[in-house]
Write a protein that binds this DNA or RNA. Structure first.
Lengths: 222, 222
DNA sequence: TGTGACGCTATTGTGTACAAACCTGCCTCG
DNA sequence: CGAGGCAGGTTTGTACACAATAGCGTCACA
């Protein structure tokens, strides 16, 4: 039995990405190839590779001349991201409604059960909620069977600031997400692509408003 | 006066990209780093860089293990690309309607004049048409002032197969494009973002149908 | 004291060497 | 005659050395 032996470039990608998502590398901070190479225990070459990918996904930006910084998104940009996500993910939901197998729909039910577990405990487990939510949305994107759509959405789904903000959500918001997922599953089960798309549009839009209410509280807490 | 001195990686990117767009590197053919390095007159390092970018934009795909091939798109994928472009570019047009300066609207008129020149000559100049069309659409995307939207559209706008198919278009199709651009300009001038978005949706959708009629003729000609 | 030039340092860009992985064709053995 | 495996060549992955460039502080001079 041999370990899958990931490439150094992939390990560097995962490592740097989680530095950004966790907030250890705060927005606006500079990332130098050498420093990252040291952290990841590899040479600069695979780090360069990883940074190119992270740049394409807009996790990092390059200054006018080639220095790399962690992306720092304004609230306006987050609004735009939600608008794009709404369009693309509604499209994905419509396609998925025509393509999901019944086994996949069963999986969606499973993810939503996990989500319920995370929400219903005395103190909601936000990390578990986010994980189940991620699995739910990714399965839909996958079922849409459009590599290009998936590539575009990949740059939109994981937003550090939204992730951090989610810890501020009240139980009511989390429960609403859960109910909206239930309705999506109904739309999928009846193969109604128009319904699925509309519910997804509303779901993302509502998520945006939850975010924009919570974000100022987060700012204030800093 | 010193030349801007582009980086080798950028030159390699442009070179490889035009190999793909021109058809010199046909869909499905393998691209090896060493061969490309030779063609571009640089070492493998900047070629790797360029290939990463082209991969992110889906001009090339990587096989299960890391060999690079020119992407070969099915007609279904092209349909999906037009669907995504329609959504995103309509969104861009809506944003642009609220942001275009009058100088920019004047530029759009200029591009459409170029387009008219290209169409109205005895034998329509398709290359000039495509160039003016590209400039027109890019200005709108730029005016939308959304880097993320621009990044997503960048992977959708230049499609080798569509480019080749355009040579099959009749004068009527080219004239319709021109008239639709005129209507877009009207919508922009009146700052009506709903109108602009709707016209753009129709424009892209009509372009898809022009493509899907011409594509079989292209296939037959091979 | 303000400003511009200079040089130092930090950082990225490129070339090259070598290692690892992979594909291919052939050869052996059942 | 087919399957498996074992070279050998091809291609990509990684490290490292050195070159080029941008940012920054300092110092001289007006």
């Amino acid at each position: 039995m041999k370990m899958p032996m990931t490439r150094a470039a992939d390990r560097a990608y995962d490592e740097i990405r989680s530095l950004i998502l966790s907030g250890d590398a705060p927005p606006g901070s500079q990332l130098t190839e050498e420093h990252l190479a040291e952290i990841c225990g590899v040479s600069r070459t695979p780090v360069r590779d990883a940074l190119r990918r992270l740049e394409a996904e807009l996790y990092v930006v390059r200054s006018d001349s080639q220095r790399v910084f962690v992306a720092d998104w304004s609230l306006e940009e987050v609004e735009e991201i939600f608008a794009l996500r709404g369009m693309l993910e509604a499209h994905a939901a419509g396609r998925a409604a025509r393509r999901l197998t019944s086994a996949q729909i069963e999986s969606l039910r499973g993810f939503n059960a996990d989500l319920r577990d995370a929400v219903m405990r005395p103190a909601p487990d936000v990390a578990a909620f986010l994980e189940a939510n991620r699995a739910f949305h990714n399965l839909i994107i996958d079922a849409a069977q459009s590599p290009r759509l998936a590539a575009n959405l990949a740059t939109l789904v994981e937003q550090p600031i939204v992730r951090r903000t989610a810890r501020q959500y009240g139980r009511d918001q989390l429960e609403r997400s859960m109910r909206e997922h239930d309705e999506l599953i109904q739309a999928f089960a009846s193969r109604d692509n128009g319904w699925a798309g509309a519910v997804m549009t509303a779901h993302i839009r509502r998520a945006y408003h939850a975010f924009s209410e919570a974000a100022p509280r987060l700012k204030a807490a800093e």
